[in-house]
């Protein structure tokens, strides 16, 4: 079985802070990480590899520094790593991103494609289902549990607001995975050592099977018209008082607001 996992390098948005004076973003020192949902997807792939002997490829589209997450994936145990990087791919929205990744996938063998549900820097949850559409594959999103019959059928537990659904589909197909579904393994020590001597294939736009008008800025139906800092409402009063006084303050406010 061939599994391809699509991963993305993202700024760790939980580390992003706002300058309280200016209300602007403090970008310095924000670490880049493998997107958590993608890492969950990678763990599922590696578990299938252990049980059924799958060949696991990771691919990312991004800047050259995304090499770091591919090395991390190699150290976790994947067989092949591809960095899709090209200026022509820049400025892509989700549709153009999914077109480019689908173009890369068309040149590869796959039975199962795994993506994260969403990336923490955009939270759109769009690229996975869009890849499935471009490749005319069935898809199940919000995967929280996966079983494989060893032949070609996957049984998937999909999270919903009310509980879950159990769905079945045959390879080839695509799933999008929730980070909370699985605990990703750590990189092994020997894996880390090896990861830096192994090859990360670097692909440019010529290597993928997709028309140029479908990728990058040209292939993006949406564009940013403007961006602006979020307007925060003026802060209320803050008190540093004894617990007794704090309780008094809270009770008075709750009364004033007719909450009690």
């Amino acid at each position: 079985m061939n599994i391809v996992v699509c991963i993305k390098q993202v700024p760790d948005t939980t580390e992003v802070k706002i300058n309280p004076q200016t209300g602007t973003l403090i970008r310095e020192g924000v670490p880049s990480i493998m997107n958590p949902d993608d890492k969950g997807g990678l763990e599922f792939a590696l578990q299938l590899k252990e049980q059924y002997g799958a060949h696991v490829t990771v691919i990312t589209m991004g800047l050259p520094q995304a090499d770091a997450i591919l090395r991390e994936a190699l150290a976790m145990g994947v067989d092949r790593a591809i960095l899709l990087t090209d200026r022509k791919l820049g400025g892509a929205d989700t549709l153009a991103t999914s077109s480019a990744l689908a173009g890369a996938l068309r040149t590869m063998d796959y039975d199962l494609i795994i993506t994260g549900r969403q990336a923490i820097d955009g939270d759109t949850a769009q690229v996975g289902p869009q890849i499935a559409e471009h490749l005319d594959l069935p898809q199940v999103s919000y995967l929280e549990h996966l079983e494989y019959d060893g032949n070609k059928t996957f049984t998937i537990r999909k999270q919903t607001e009310e509980g879950y659904q159990v769905l079945q589909m045959d390879a080839p197909c695509l799933v999008t995975v929730l980070a909370s579904a699985v605990k990703p393994r750590y990189m092994s020590v020997s894996g880390i050592v090896d990861a830096y001597s192994r090859e990360v294939e670097v692909w440019n736009a010529d290597k993928i099977d997709v028309p140029e008008e479908r990728i990058g800025k040209a292939g993006s139906p949406t564009s940013v018209f403007k961006s602006f800092p979020k307007s925060l409402k003026p802060a209320g009063e803050t008190f540093e008082v004894s617990p007794e006084e704090a309780v008094e303050l809270i009770v008075n406010k709750l009364k004033e607001k007719h909450i009690i």
Partner: peptide, 30 residues
């Protein structure tokens, strides 16, 4: 309403009423 030990916590920027203190004491008393 925000209760937090750290008076620099960003939650106080959006709170209408901020209390710098120990929730483990204040919440049960409240």
């Amino acid at each position: 309403i925000a209760i937090n030990k750290d008076k620099y916590a960003p939650i106080f920027n959006v709170a209408d009423l901020g209390i710098v203190g120990d929730l483990h004491k204040i919440v049960p008393m409240l």
